[in-house]
Design a protein around this nucleic acid. Sequence first.
DNA 1: CGCTAAGCGAGACGGTACGTCGAGTCTTGCT
DNA 2: AGCAAGACTCGACGTACCGTCTCGCTTAGCG
Lengths: 210, 210, 210, 210
Amino acid sequence: MGADAGGTTDNRRATTARHTGNRHGRSEEARQSVLEAADDLLVEVGYTRLTIEGIAERAGVAKQTIYRWWPSKNDILMDAFVQDAAEDLIPADTADLRRDLRAHARKVALFLTKSDAGAVFRALTAQAQHDSVLAARLRAEHLGKQRRYDRLPFERAVTRGALDPGADLDLAVDQVMGPVYYRVLVTGQSVPEEFTDTLVDAVLDRLTGA
Amino acid sequence: MGADAGGTTDNRRATTARHTGNRHGRSEEARQSVLEAADDLLVEVGYTRLTIEGIAERAGVAKQTIYRWWPSKNDILMDAFVQDAAEDLIPADTADLRRDLRAHARKVALFLTKSDAGAVFRALTAQAQHDSVLAARLRAEHLGKQRRYDRLPFERAVTRGALDPGADLDLAVDQVMGPVYYRVLVTGQSVPEEFTDTLVDAVLDRLTGA
Amino acid sequence: MGADAGGTTDNRRATTARHTGNRHGRSEEARQSVLEAADDLLVEVGYTRLTIEGIAERAGVAKQTIYRWWPSKNDILMDAFVQDAAEDLIPADTADLRRDLRAHARKVALFLTKSDAGAVFRALTAQAQHDSVLAARLRAEHLGKQRRYDRLPFERAVTRGALDPGADLDLAVDQVMGPVYYRVLVTGQSVPEEFTDTLVDAVLDRLTGA
Amino acid sequence: MGADAGGTTDNRRATTARHTGNRHGRSEEARQSVLEAADDLLVEVGYTRLTIEGIAERAGVAKQTIYRWWPSKNDILMDAFVQDAAEDLIPADTADLRRDLRAHARKVALFLTKSDAGAVFRALTAQAQHDSVLAARLRAEHLGKQRRYDRLPFERAVTRGALDPGADLDLAVDQVMGPVYYRVLVTGQSVPEEFTDTLVDAVLDRLTGA
DNA sequence: CGCTAAGCGAGACGGTACGTCGAGTCTTGCT
DNA sequence: AGCAAGACTCGACGTACCGTCTCGCTTAGCG
């Protein structure tokens, strides 16, 4: 990852004081305005016209301050994404697999297609195709956790005894989430509620032997 | 530069190169070497370090010749892809839906993960996330056709009477292809034969009411 | 290039060069090497083949550094000339008008035909024919002052009482300097000492009523 | 002068027929429109923005047709100038040296400062500073002849016995013409009638021992 | 009277340099 | 020690013209 790899991991070390230049560690204020500026600019001008200089200017921050803490544009976006998507896509639990899964699939679809955080995610996913380090970070800091959330409804159903413990849950997750991401990233089709519902039903019908 | 004047008047240097362009159209030779150079360089150095100047140099072509015919780097890749992927991913027809679909899914997976053309496709799909015009072109010139190929096995089965004519074929295609693209573009997992086989089986089991 | 995207994101290549520029003003070192490089190259390759890129390379300076401080090639030359021609063409004062004027005319002729600074002056004068802004600058920063020097011998003579106070000194200056510049810029004839001597004599003979 | 030196001298070989493509030598029509286009464009956009492509387009002529007959932009201007300045600056002869010389000096000043041909001359003189081949051509095809014209009034006076046969006529010419060109090319001052008159008087007063 | 060959308009080509943008590095002076 | 400011080197961008090179048309003159 080049020279300043440490910056990527250090940048969540919390510092309590507000300051603009002292010897007590990084400025939380600067960190925040950079992430917000990056977020805003991505939505406003798109990934292509998103520049470090633009972020610095918008954030009212010196370019060097950015380079001190982030190795690249993508790392800024990654941080911005991690911070914003704290609004995690955690599936609800109503003890009804079909209902929970439908709701969860719907929520993921909306996140991907409608939210600002989803726009950041799509940009990051796109760049991850050309940058394996970014790809690894994206998986480590988001996709892994998200995968576990996506599995949750099934696991709860197994625990409840509503699903055969021998079922291939990974396959089930792929069958539900795969087509959603596929539409968003590849075909560009919309992802209406009927689609996610039908998808969930198709998977569950097979899984529960309906 | 203002009224700077005459600096380029006297370069009477001989240019020895041969070429074949004339008023009746562009040089096919130049077109070919550009597309090949772009293809090669994408694989060699990756999308990020792929530059128009690099392509021009590798192709032995003047930069202006590229700009005369292609508006952007992505358009070159698009042309290169269209030309190369003439080796279409057309499913075989052995009158056995399961067998044909398994083979087709496998072929698509290999294309995406192993071939040079697949690398170009992944780069284009990535860039299409930031460029709606490119996205439209990608759909018009590749994905539409590919989608019809992906449906073919199912349609043949319907024609043969092996599948219920009322089945939701679009959903079936999404369920087979979606998870494959999902793994390649999002999770980065490998796509082994067992995966595609199981996937096909899961879809067909439901569809044929097994 | 359209929404081409991210191509320049990841060039984390190390740049090792040292420099001295900072917020408190430009690098004097860079300024000097640019002026010297321009000067040298003008003499070496001539105005026509003098390029900004060539100057930058010779000076060991980035092209952008040149564009940051000079609007055009001519402005560089103008600065180079102003700096070098600090070796002003100031006439000596021996209380002998004829002697001083002969020496001064000779010095100007040598400057125009033999010196590097004279080569820059000729180039600038040539370009000033196509660029009125440059012409104005050339007059403001050099010709005005030079004109005053050219008048000096006559004025001293008037002060000494050796010359009629009512004499048309401007005409006298034009009659001495005009033919010198005329030979250099128009006819391309050489300007030998006999020529300037005779010229001075002709003017003075009339002026002093000899 | 590079490859096609012959073109420069051949291009006044008259061809009677009008044609646009045959085997009887060059098209006089094309030659004329090129020269006119060059002339017009020089006045309209200035030397700096005068391009071969611009001339070709304005003249309705292919670029190659220009390159076939002229080695450079300056050679076109040279031809245009030679053709236009057929309106030669020949001094009148009224058997009155002072009157003829005053009229001639005035005519030269007006030519240099007011006429289109004068603009071309100034541009060529400027470029001749950077191009010794052009300088030589300018002298051979214009300045030599003009110099003889400038001497004419003096020679006639000698013939008439109005002037001492031993007078230095070359110096006299330099003293009259030098300051005029000097003002035009160097100081940029205007050249009013009083100036040329006074100049002529100063020279003649000395010459005739007035 | 058809063939040949030159001049022409058109315009694609390989190149050089332009002037600009942004990347990432470095230094200074402030806090 | 972190920061704002901003000059620096460097690589690539997209453009403008250069001078060269076909191509296909037109049109004499020659056989």
